[in-house]
Simulated assay, not measured.
Amino acid sequence: MKMIPLGRTDIMVSDWCLGTMTYGNQTPQDDAHTQIDMAVDAGINFLDTAEMYPVNPIRAETVGLSEQVIGNWIAKTGRRHDIVIATKVSGDNPGWVREGRGYDGAVIREAVDTSLKRLQTDVIDLYQMHWPLRGSYMFRQNWTYDPSGQNRQETLDHMMDVLTALADCVKAGKIKAIGMSNESAWGMTKWIDQAECAGLPRMASVQNEYSLLCRLYDTDMAEMAVNEDVTLLSFSPLACGLLTGKYQNGAVPDGSRMAINGDLGGRKSPRVFEATQAYLDLAAAHGLDPVHMAMAWQRTRPFAVSAIFGATTAAQLERILAGADVVLSDEVVSAIDNLNRAHPMPY
Score class of each variant (00 low, 15 high):
Y145V: 11
V55P: 00
Y145C: 05
G310W: 07
W16G: 01
A32Q: 08
D289W: 12
E67P: 06
M12C: 13
L243C: 03
Q298H: 13
S205H: 07
A39T: 03
G78T: 07
L264W: 02
I108K: 01
Y53C: 06
E209H: 05
P346V: 00
C17T: 08
R257M: 11
T244W: 04
Q68A: 09
R134Q: 15
A335T: 07
V332E: 02
Y279N: 08
G95D: 07
D161Y: 05
S306H: 02
T9R: 11
A324S: 08
Y103W: 07
V206T: 15
E223A: 14
D161P: 01
I178C: 00
A294G: 02
D220M: 07
I192Q: 05
Q298P: 00
A275V: 01
V230K: 02
N93D: 05
L163M: 12
Q26Y: 04
K88I: 10
D157T: 04
L280D: 02
I175D: 06
A294I: 02
I74C: 05
G43V: 11
Q153T: 13
S181A: 14
G262P: 01
R267F: 14
Q128S: 11
A335F: 03
M3D: 09
L264N: 00
K176M: 03
M12D: 13
N249F: 05
R257T: 08
E196V: 12
N93H: 05
L243V: 03
D330E: 11
G287Y: 05
L280E: 07
W96T: 10
G310M: 06
R271G: 06
I85Q: 10
A60P: 00
G287M: 06
R215A: 12
D157E: 14
W297D: 02
T49M: 08
Y23N: 05
D220K: 08
W191V: 13
A283W: 04
L65E: 11
M180S: 09
L339S: 02
M345W: 11
A42D: 10
Q194H: 13
V84S: 08
D37S: 05
Y217S: 09
E183I: 09
E196N: 09
Q29G: 04
Y23D: 03
P132E: 10
R301A: 10
N142V: 13
P57V: 15
E154Y: 02
M258F: 07
T164P: 03
N249T: 00
S115T: 02
I178K: 01
L126A: 09
Y210E: 07
G105Y: 08
R319T: 08
G100I: 08
G43W: 15
P344I: 15
L242R: 00
Y347W: 14
D330F: 03
S329R: 06
W96D: 09
W297K: 05
R271M: 12
H158R: 03
L238I: 12
Q207S: 11
E196M: 10
N208R: 10
L216E: 15
Y23W: 15
L18I: 04
G265N: 09
D263H: 10
Y210T: 06
V55H: 04
N261R: 12
K246Y: 03
K246V: 01
S329D: 04
G71Y: 00
F235K: 06
M221Y: 04
M345C: 09
D263V: 10
S66G: 06
Y103D: 06
I108H: 09
G262H: 09
E228W: 15
